[in-house]
Design a protein around this nucleic acid. Structure first.
Lengths: 226, 226
DNA sequence: CTTGACCATACAGTATGCAATCCGCATCGT
DNA sequence: ACGATGCGGATTGCATACTGTATGGTCAAG
């Protein structure tokens, strides 16, 4: 497992928090694949710290749902089957739809302008780098979550979508599907601009459902092959 | 802080899990009031274990949102203001409403019978013991969460409502309000029986909203007095 | 050749000691 | 009198040593 967890900056604040972030990132972007065993001693050695902060990190990640742990048997990177993902996206649609509806009621002019700008950038990336597209997509959704003015919902959505496959799902998108995504972003922005909460919710939900369809079908395909 | 955390049964399986449950229960039913400092050594002494499992317990409870912790300054029991509770109940209405809608599609005859039985018991407790009423209410909601067949939603709701005030809120109910609660339970059960998801969702939401109204107004009153 | 018990080993669970940090208080200087 | 500075106690953060438990392998008996 060498070289998987190299930190580039000085350890953030304290060892536990740093370990948590490094391991989380490694899981989310796939360097630690689902099913991978996470041995405390090994991780500690790699991060140059003792087992105690590693244990704390694993505990936090377990609470976040990124790792599974059994008593006396250690932790593994949690894996998600297609049913699981379907459930998760259903929940995401519910929460982000709700966030969009709430955002319509209270979103600022500045935030709307920000969303339009994000749409521009998203559109210009349709035939461009996937990595950048993912980042822009994340930004768009985050602006709406913040505008919903519900701390709990925003927090929840961020936790819920914190999964390897979710972040990487744009990889599966065809150019045509990217265009449709861009269109939905624009339509959501317009609905918010017009203070039309119902419509913002509606489009957001469909946007999430389509993401679910792509992802779930790809995962089911992969499951077939086994 | 003597005598607050006495365990009655043999320690569940391991010390961390036992500590987590004991502290959680103490917070939820109010023996550890909001704002109370949670010193590791003190808790360890009281539970007859070392600081390590106590640290782990506090970490878990922090992830659950029951305690706040600042680096190098320890943990305190988290307190919730009225705005916070309002946000939380809004979220609860959304999630439990959704759970009720889903439950309508797939609930078993047996579960419906169970709900009717719960309604009977709830009605017979209207002028009875609050403690029992709270328990019966919890049972009712749990049956629906299980029937929703969405592991994540059920899990989420249980985490979200895991708060001292939520469990104790029936204390504030008048007999008339209890009657109305009983009526809503019955109506929800009937809607589920008739496979009417939309109506089950509707009534569930109103049921939660009314709980919110009672609780938030009581908390605002208490905040005024300061 | 199969099956069961035992043992070795690897790893998680817990305890404890020491270092780092924070906070209150007193002392000093302006 | 008031703010800055430094000291000491309290408490968390981390490391390490020890203990308990699960698993896989080996060997003997059937």
């Amino acid at each position: 497992m060498a070289r998987i967890l190299q930190e580039r900056a000085p350890l953030v604040r304290n060892a536990s928090a740093a370990a948590t972030e490094l391991i989380r990132e490694a899981i989310v972007d796939g360097r630690l694949p689902p099913g991978q065993r996470l041995k405390e001693e090994e991780l500690a050695r790699e991060l140059g710290i003792s087992r105690t902060p590693v244990r704390e990190a694993l505990l936090i990640l377990q609470a976040e749902g990124l790792v599974d742990a059994a008593p006396n048997r250690g932790a593994v990177v949690r894996s998600h089957d297609a049913d699981d993902l379907e459930d998760l996206y259903q929940l995401r649609a519910l929460l982000e739809g709700y966030a969009a509806r709430r955002a319509a009621a209270s979103i600022s002019e500045a935030a709307v302008a920000g969303l339009h700008a994000s749409c521009e950038r998203f559109e210009s990336l349709i035939e461009g780098d996937v990595q950048e597209l993912v980042k822009e997509n994340l930004l768009f959704h985050n602006v709406i979550l913040d505008a919903s003015r519900s701390r709990r919902v925003a927090e929840l959505v961020r936790k819920v979508i914190e999964l390897p496959l979710v972040y990487r799902s744009y990889i599966w998108y065809s150019v045509e599907q990217r265009r449709i995504s861009a269109h939905y972003h624009r339509q959501i922005t317009r609905a918010l601009e017009a203070r039309d909460g119902e419509r913002a919710e509606l489009v957001m939900k469909e946007h999430v459902y389509e993401a679910r369809d792509v992802l779930v079908s790809k995962v089911r395909e992969a499951e077939e092959r086994e």
